[in-house]
Amino acid sequence: MTDNGTPRLPLAAEDGAVADLMRARRGGRLSALDRLLLHSPPVAEGWNALLGALRSSTLPGDLRELVILRVAVLNDADFEWAAHEPIGRRAGLTDVQLELLRRTDPAGDAWSAMQSAVLVFADASTRTVAVPDAVFAALREHLDDRQVVELVATVAGYAMVSRFLVALEVPPPAGEVAG
């Protein structure tokens, strides 16, 4: 992060049609992430559509947030963690689960079989990109075709988010809106 706790680029203006689309998805507010994306309206518009789709997938909220938070940990994206931890809690993730997500090996008794399979998949996909057949097969025991596609896209999408946040050193302000 820069010495003064600000991103590496200045925040863009909050006006224009794309900013309005982003604000509509966000419930009226733009995040620092949005304001950085607005330096490129085509990128911001595509990002907004993709992240909106990922956030409204058929995946249960606890699985979606588990994946987002795990990717944040693996990629050292503090903004992403700060933005999604409260959402994860509302989706049903417990204090114990949130603590486990922060560990190098998050395995433990706190996870359902489905959550465990999703977590192992997220780790494999984020750490090595290639997912072993056994990891994929375990995931298929719990998710249908659509949910698999949505899970893979969520892991990939939030890897993109985390890399953007980390590269531009976006600090995690309190009360920031997510994704």
Rank of each mutant, 00 (worst) to 15 (best):
N48R: 10
E99M: 07
A107G: 14
F79L: 14
L54C: 08
P106I: 04
A72H: 06
R89C: 04
E99V: 08
D95M: 01
P42H: 09
A82K: 11
L98Q: 06
I68F: 02
L63I: 11
L50H: 06
S57Q: 05
L36R: 05
E99R: 13
G46E: 04
E99D: 14
L51F: 12
G108A: 11
V73K: 09
H84N: 11
H39I: 05
A44W: 09
W111Y: 06
S57E: 08
L100S: 13
P60T: 10
P41K: 09
A53E: 11
P106A: 13
N48G: 13
A113N: 12
L30E: 09
A110T: 11
S40F: 01
R70E: 08
R102M: 10
N75V: 01
D95A: 15
A107Q: 15
P41C: 03
S31A: 12
W111E: 14
D105C: 01
A91D: 07
T94N: 11
A44F: 08
A110I: 14
L100T: 09
S40E: 04
A110D: 11
D34C: 02
L69D: 03
G88L: 08
R70Q: 05
Q115F: 09
V43Y: 05
R89H: 08
R90T: 07
L54Q: 04
A53M: 08
D34I: 02
R64L: 14
L74E: 07
N48S: 14
D76F: 12
V67T: 15
R102K: 13
M114S: 13
A77K: 06
R70T: 10
S57C: 10
R102V: 05
L100D: 14
I68L: 05
D78R: 15
S112D: 07
V96T: 15
V71M: 09
L101R: 03
L69R: 05
M114E: 15
H39A: 00
G46S: 10
R70L: 05
S112E: 12
A83W: 05
D62G: 01
E85I: 09
R64S: 04
H84I: 08
A91K: 06
W47C: 00
R70M: 10
A44M: 07
L98T: 04
D78V: 10
M114N: 11
A44T: 03
G108I: 13
P106T: 09
A53Q: 09
A110P: 09
R89S: 11
R55C: 03
L51P: 00
L51G: 01
R103E: 15
E65K: 02
E80G: 01
G92N: 06
R35Y: 00
E45L: 01
L101P: 03
L93Q: 07
R103Q: 15
V43K: 02
A49C: 00
G92E: 05
D34Q: 01
L93W: 04
L30F: 00
E65C: 03
